[in-house]
Amino acid sequence: MGILEDTGRFLYGLVESAGRGTILFLQALAQCRYFPRNLDKFLGQVFVCGVSAIPVVAITATFTGMVIAAQTGTELKKYGLADLTIGPIVGASMCREMGPVLTAICVAGFVGGGMASVIATMRVNEEIDALEVMSINPVRFLVMPRLTAMMIALPLLTVFADFVGILGGALVAQFQVGVTYFVFFDYLKWALALRDIAFGLVKAWTFAVIITMVACEQGMSASGGAEGVGRATMRSVVYSFLLILVANYLLFSLVYRTIFTKVWS
């Protein structure tokens, strides 16, 4: 009974957070008309969301590309298919799946958690109340710059992750599987479609909205001192992970298999 109750409470919290995050997203979109006058906040957040996450994303993507090449390459080599397929497999896996999802997971933990804790601390210290009292809209001041920055930074990080992941895969193909760079990239170019990269970017934009909105919503609704800040941070990371995985499946089923394969065939 306890487990069922806990699961129900957790799912209720997840759905409630998604709902409040959706409302916050609409409010942030409405505040985008003030974007040109808040460029400094936007640029500061681009650094926080993008530049600071580069080392983590680079390491994760490189080793992911390497492990895909190592796992598939050694198996396919047995059947003499490594030359033909290792490049396309690494490329498609990175651009369509691993690049966007792993980058989003890294950023949700690394940046989203930080974002939630900063806003939650501001909430419990009455800094957000102070903004409202000063006639400063907290959504305009805190959420809109973070949302716009993340929507620029995450797709760029995803392209970067795709690139270094493919490079990592090419290294393993050359030195461990015995497929030369020339063969790896030749078949990769032949097989990798523009729609795979575009689909990866659509995913990245969706994940950017999820990460920012969950983090900001959890931060804005935090209460209860230091414990509340910790709870908001933890929930932000866990809810983001789950919503990213759910959205990833839905995007493949509803968007890629319908729009992308038909329009881009």
């Binding site: 003030y34 109340d129 102070a130 305009r140 001041f141």
Partner: peptide, 30 residues
Amino acid sequence: FGMVFQNAALLQSLTVAENVALPLVERFRQ
């Protein structure tokens, strides 16, 4: 209105001058 909060509620990421200027700066921007 102006309001003085119990714990001052200064924005921790800004200097004292930036905190004090904040209402005017934001009003000018918007």
